[in-house]
Nucleic acid binder design. Structure first.
Length: 939
DNA sequence: GCAAGGTC
């Protein structure tokens, strides 16, 4: 039996289908693994590596004294099956095989996977001949060729891969253990280190340092609007960015009529056809057509497996000589791209474009088989089309642009406008993905004058470099050679799961930063991309048999030993360093009260503050704006007066907010409120601050005795101060309540901030919602409110006041809402108005109203109204409705006069009732008369 | 409990 071992299931299936030619392929599942048989041949797919390299037993205890982290450097390694089912099946089949062909991918890692298979086979069948088939695309032609001329396994190539495995394991595991133990972290909190992850983390840390150091510089852009034949045209000042304000303004000032064309330059620009696809370029291009990197990779893999495109994991951007470009073009004439292909065949450039990277493992990504849209479905077709079009573009002529540059002069100031028109479409004809934005500018002649419509000077600011996005980081990793196409994404995930970085635009955590700083100080090698470059150079030497794998690994072990010399000598320092630095990042400087450390602290949720590490003995603290304004970080600058680090609030997409010295800012921002206390004098203020009393709340919380002791003043004076402090706090509380109210009730509008409205009101002596309710409408209008807004605000203010007062009187919130809506403005209304009336207007049952009236009157210390039941009220209403001239509306008014039924109407004094109800006295008299007539009739 | 690299 002939056994063929492929790298993965899907390529096993595909290889079987091709090699079987006309024979039927029997698919069989054995022990959960698919096998593909035809004739005497069985094809089985691995799952990439099916064994894993690890240390020999005896090194599992991290804290073993005999086996410290450093002992891992020279520890023996073993290969351990990780895919047991596949290993078992492979060995079962190998026993029956009389020939084995390794058909794994054609690269160092594929060769190693092949060698792993070979070792597994030889372990059970030492004598079986083992061959190697090499192919870089799973196409019938390529596969047939590869199997027609099989070679030997390349042990040097596999050894290159093995060396990488061991070096990665040894460095990674030993350093991970060392740093974790030093920083006393275990379990889920270990601090991992690795050849790829650590330099990647270092990049993120570096970027963060850059952003923190960044100081924005202002600059100015000067533009001029003109027109020609009614076509608007924007000109730029040739200076571009003005960094000097006076120069910018000077240039603007000097820009004057006439605006004259001084020069017209026409030219031709070659727009080079794009280079062949490697993985990164494919992923970037796929991103432009709306396919995410991860998705694109998955689809490309699938297209490759089914023979539509070549191997999608490649760094090569140069077509190898062996690739028959004519044949690919011929194949494409059988696709939907026949027209484009024929055009390319006709206009083909002498040699295809080539990129910078040339490697031999795989050709650039190109189409290998014809496909239809129906066959592939939308997404796969989109990517296939992209690969096809890119291939065509690499064989197409360059595009050509006709460019035009027009220079102007306006009062001696030079301006310019540039335009471009696509003259020769070239490759853009077959590759329409990148935008070819034409900018046509009107034809101008030298000496011509155009009008100056406006001259605009715009002030801008230089921006700090942005944090890495995941895809940007993947690109940078690629540029630096960190990781592979299939691992880069995973590395970033690892940094996130280790809590080294936060997702979003990637930002390092304190721990991530501390680890990088420690490694930079003592094991610099592992934090730099150079380690990967060196490793790759060494792997190349192994491939070329200029060095043995063993030599390379041993050299690396030697280097790691010398790294450990430094590490072990500083273990305590490194451990404390990491522990301290996570703390130090938050430490601001000495507490003004007790001298211990002030620290930036994050409370639960969105609050942050500066607290004393001496808490609870020392309660000194400085409040900070919530994290919605930015996360507080320490910056390098230190306050000369207080010795405290300056604090900055950083927020995504916003300019950092520099608070400066937090204590200076604390003192300054609170001095104003302290001065609101009537007894506050400059001398007293200085005295308070000298005693580290900076805020009104601190005074308000103190007992007079305490304050007297601290300041050396009399208890009586101190008591006055404490009382004043409480008054100020109360005033501030009411003002802030009012501000909140205005924010909620007044819609936002340009040039009218809520803070500004509140400020104007406060200046006019309005400090709370209550006085706002009684404010003159003119005042609000002056603050920028419209008539409608003014009325709304005043009404709402009154309502809120009513609500508040009713609630304070002890009425439940649900009913209060109803009363307020009915115009009841306070508890005294319950004493003054008849419950029947309140019930009628508010819809609350009269018994409930009466109960509330009792509560309200008790709060006021007034006599409660007489009790009345719902039943009695209803029967009384019936009686009243009988009276001619009395309807629902009249009844409500009669209630105001305490008239609830026929009897009370009869007994009413018409004059008094008229006054209370607002009904004309004649009408009341008529009602009363009608009642007495009725009564007489009844009798 | 460690890495990085295959594959899914």
């Amino acid at each position: 039996m002939r056994l063929i071992v492929a790298e993965k299931n899907i390529s096993a299936r595909r290889v079987a289908a091709i090699l079987a030619e006309d024979q039927r392929v029997a698919t069989k599942k054995e022990g959960g693994v698919d096998t593909y048989s035809f004739g005497d041949t069985t094809v089985v797919g691995l799952k990439g590596h099916v064994v894993e390299v690890d240390f020999e037993p005896g090194y599992t205890n991290w804290r073993s004294a005999e086996r410290p982290p450093r002992s891992l450097i020279d520890a023996g390694t073993v290969k351990r099956p990780t895919e047991k089912k596949i290993v078992a099946l492979l060995q079962k089949m190998a026993k029956k095989a009389d020939q084995v062909i390794i058909a794994t991918d054609f690269d160092a890692e594929g060769e190693l996977i092949g060698k792993e298979a070979l070792e597994l086979v030889q372990a059970v069948n030492p004598r079986v001949p083992i061959l190697r088939a090499r192919f870089s695309a799973i196409t019938p032609q390529e596969i047939r060729r590869a199997f027609a001329e099989p070679t030997e396994l390349d042990f040097a190539l596999a050894a290159a891969g093995e060396s990488r495995q061991i070096i990665d394991l040894v460095w990674g595991a030993s350093l991970t253990r060392f740093i974790s133990i030093a920083a006393r972290r275990g379990g889920a909190n270990i601090l991992s280190v690795g050849r790829v992850q650590s330099p990647t983390l270092a990049m993120i840390v570096d970027r963060e340092r850059e952003i923190e150091r960044f100081v924005p510089e202002p600059y100015w852009m000067l533009t001029l609007q003109t027109e020609k034949d009614h076509t608007p045209l924007e000109l730029r000042h040739t200076a571009g960015r003005f960094t000097d304000r006076d120069e910018a303004f000077g240039a603007k000032e000097r820009t004057k009529d006439p605006l004259t064309v001084t020069e017209v330059k026409e030219g031709v620009k070659h727009d080079r056809a794009p280079t062949p696809f490697d993985t990164t370029a494919l992923l970037v291009a796929a991103g432009r057509v709306g396919i995410s990197a991860a998705n694109a990779m998955r689809i490309a893999e699938d297209l490759y497996m089914n023979g539509f495109i070549s191997y999608p994991r490649t760094d090569n951007t140069v077509y190898p000589a062996t690739l028959d470009l004519d044949e690919v073009l011929g194949m494409l004439t059988k696709t939907a791209f026949a027209n484009e292909t024929r055009w390319v065949e006709k206009h083909r450039r002498p040699t295809p474009t080539r990129g910078k990277k040339s490697s031999t493992d795989h050709p650039p990504i190109h189409p290998t088989g014809p496909a239809t849209r129906e066959q592939l479905g939308e997404d796969r077709w989109k990517l296939y089309e992209l690969v096809v079009r890119r291939f065509l573009a690499t064989l197409s002529p360059d595009a050509e642009w006709a460019t035009m540059k027009v220079n102007f002069d306006a009062g001696g100031e030079p301006y310019t406008a540039t335009g471009g028109r696509l003259k020769e479409e070239g490759w853009r004809r077959v590759y329409p993905y990148s935008r070819a934005a034409e900018r046509i500018i009107p034809v101008c002649t030298v000496g011509e004058r155009l009008p100056i419509l406006s001259v605009d000077l715009e002030e801008k600011e230089t921006q700090p470099p942005p944090r890495y996005t995941q895809s940007r980081l993947i690109q940078t990793m690629e540029e630096l050679g960190l990781g592979t196409k299939s691992t880069r994404h995973e590395v970033i995930q690892k940094l996130i799961s280790r809590r080294y970085v936060q997702d979003g635009p990637l930002r390092p955590t304190l721990v991530g930063r501390a680890v990088i700083e420690s490694l930079e100080a003592h094991a610099d090698t592992i934090t730099r991309p150079d380690m990967t470059r060196t490793l790759e150079a060494h792997m190349q030497l192994i491939k070329e048999r200029k060095k043995s794998g063993e030599d390379v690994v041993n050299e690396s072990r030697g280097m790691l030993h010398s790294v450990f010399e430094g590490l072990e000598a500083h273990e305590d320092q490194i451990g404390e360093g990491i522990i301290d630095r996570t703390v130090a990042e938050r430490t601001i400087g000495p507490c003004p009260v007790c001298g211990k450390d002030l620290q930036l602290r994050q409370a639960h949720g969105a609050s942050q503050f500066i607290g004393c590490s001496g808490y609870p003995e020392c309660t000194f603290n400085i409040s900070l704006p919530g994290v919605m304004w930015g996360k507080a970080i320490r910056v390098e600058k230190v306050c000369e007066e207080h010795g405290l680090s300056h604090v900055r609030l950083i927020r995504k997409g916003a300019r950092p907010w520099d608070i400066g010295c937090p204590l200076c800012s604390h003192i300054e921002s609170n001095a104003e409120t302290l001065r609101m206390m009537p007894s506050m004098s400059p001398g007293l203020l200085a005295e308070l601050q000298a005693r580290h009393i900076y805020t009104v709340p601190e005074i308000a919380r103190m007992t007079p005795e305490d304050l007297a002791g601290r300041l050396g003043i009399g208890t009586k004076t101190a008591a006055t101060l404490v009382a004043e402090a409480n008054d100020v706090l109360d005033l501030l509380r009411r003002r802030s309540e009012m501000k909140k109210f205005i924010r909620a009730e007044v819609p936002p509008r340009r040039r009218r901030s809520h803070a500004k409205i509140a400020k104007q009101l406060i200046e006019a002596g309005i400090d709370d919602i209550q006085s706002l309710g009684g404010a003159k409408p003119g005042l609000l209008k002056k603050a920028g409110l419209s008539d409608e807004e003014t009325e709304h605000l005043l009404t709402r203010a009154r309502e809120v006041n009513s609500e508040k007062r009713l609630k304070e009187a002890g009425l439940p919130a649900v009913s209060v809402k109803k009363y307020v809506a009915a115009g009841i403005s306070g508890p005294e209304d319950f004493a003054a108005l008849h419950p029947a009336y309140i019930s009628a207007v508010s819809g609350v049952r009269v018994e409930t109203v009466w109960k509330h009236a009792q509560t309200a009157c008790e709060a006021l210390g007034r006599e409660p109204p007489e009790k009345i039941t719902q039943k009695k009220l209803e029967s009384g209403k019936k009686e009243l409705l009988q009276v001619s001239g009395i309807g629902e509306a009249t009844i409500e008014r009669l209630y105001l006069a305490g008239i609830t039924d026929a009897a009370s109407l009869a007994a009413a004094d018409p004059k008094e009732a008229a006054a209370k109800s607002g009904i004309a006295v004649e009408k009341i008299r008529a009602y009363v008369a009608s009642i007495s007539t009725e009564r007489k009739t009844k009798k």
